[in-house]
Design a protein around this nucleic acid. Structure first.
Lengths: 238, 238
DNA sequence: CAGTGGTCTAGACCACTAC
DNA sequence: TAGTGGTCTAGACCACTGT
């Protein structure tokens, strides 16, 4: 049996084609799962996995009790990946409501890997920040940032009423980190990501691991971020 | 009912934790689905969706008749995303067996979108190339490239025994395109991608849309590529 | 052949929405 | 209350692997 014979993939493919063709337009309600079962002479399960595929691919959303609707694609925001910009800097030029929420912060010794990344000794200290970011009050990304403590003593003092990390670094330390390298992957969210970002279980995320230097040139910051790419695209200008 | 109560997500999470902890090591066989059903007192279906999740997340592979095994992560290849490099140029420095296969080529008029991208009129011509790329004989990416015909007349003549597009451009036209912009997203494969890349249905892919100029500065090439990110990571140096 | 993963059916029960 | 999507059970049948 070939993949192309698989019933739920066929059904998903057919529904996507219908949406592309305009049979179902943006905002339209799809037939109910019950109706789709009749139409395709298939089981509830099969129809559901097909529908789930459309949800994960970003074609539709479903709401219990209401139905499944072709997505009115929210505006997609370009997120510039460059040597100099952070999340807020990127969006504030545009008139986009956005914010960062500090989930957790910690001052601790670095792990061995973090020592390699930031060129530190294990007895030194780092700050470990977990940040959740929103656009239009929709959660779009989770990130974990590790920064050398010696460059930014007493960071804790500035973390109340957190808004933007790069703003704190700029306002209180006059540091504007310089991104040197980013590694890009596509991943599926783990259970924590699913809960934190209120995602369907199989929506793909862009994961970026970035390294940034202190303006004076030494390794300063390591960030791992995971972002939904249905609301935000990374853009690189060369 | 919260997402964290969902049985198959719990089971997947548990199995992942076991792999991380080392209970199952690289190359080990997981218990059979039947055994997992017993262990978790859950249905075949539920166990299977949990297992499917691990497959899609890249933790395990499954083979009919044999079992499911913790993945011996194949070497991950860094793919440099820069202004000047193509696929082959990127990998040939490393001793990695790789090749490109030309699936299809066409000389035709551009669509309206392609006209905008390449600054063309609808009566001009473009080449439309579909290329599938392999690393170690594993298919890793599919791409669609649109190039202005006027800069590369009679491209057809050089497409037999296709190996690398950028090599053809360099050898026969002395053109080395300059990438100006890339847009990065995470997507799920459509049915065609699944078949062509021999993928599990829900493995996330990195999709990159790139624009490149002719060395003399005018828009020259537009490429949409989809790549598995379990075998290849995009790396950007700033 | 038995054991394993892969696809599908039939049907129960729940939670949410709209009327 | 009826209709909708969401989770799960029980069990059939197939395809592939190793003996």
């Amino acid at each position: 049996m070939s993949k192309s014979d698989i019933r739920h993939l066929q059904i998903a493919d057919y529904l996507i084609a219908q949406i592309k063709k305009g049979t179902y337009r943006i905002g339209d309600k799809l037939p109910s799962e019950h109706e789709l079962c009749d139409k395709f002479q298939a089981n509830h399960h099969i129809v559901r996995t097909a529908v789930a595929r459309l949800i994960n691919m970003g074609w539709i959303t479903a709401h219990q009790g209401k139905g499944a609707f072709v997505i009115s694609r929210p505006e997609v925001f370009p997120y510039q990946l460059s040597a100099r910009t952070g999340f807020s800097e990127n969006l504030k030029e545009k008139a986009v409501p956005h914010r960062g929420q500090l989930l957790h912060h910690d001052r601790r010794h670095p792990t061995q890997q973090e020592c390699r990344y930031l060129n530190l000794e294990t007895h030194e200290f780092i700050y470990d920040l977990r940040i959740k970011r929103f656009i239009n009050e929709t959660p779009v990304s989770l990130s974990k940032t590790i920064i050398c403590e010696k460059d930014i003593p007493n960071l804790e003092n500035y973390l109340t009423n957190f808004k933007s990390l790069y703003k704190i670094l700029s306002d209180h330390y006059r540091i504007s980190p310089v991104r040197t390298k980013s590694i890009v992957q596509a991943i599926l969210p783990n259970l924590e990501d699913v809960l934190m970002l209120q995602l369907p279980e199989n929506v793909p995320l862009v994961q970026i691991r970035s390294f940034a230097n202190h303006p004076n040139g030494h390794p300063f910051e390591y960030t791992l971020s995971k972002m939904r790419s249905d609301t935000c695209h990374y853009v690189i200008d060369f």
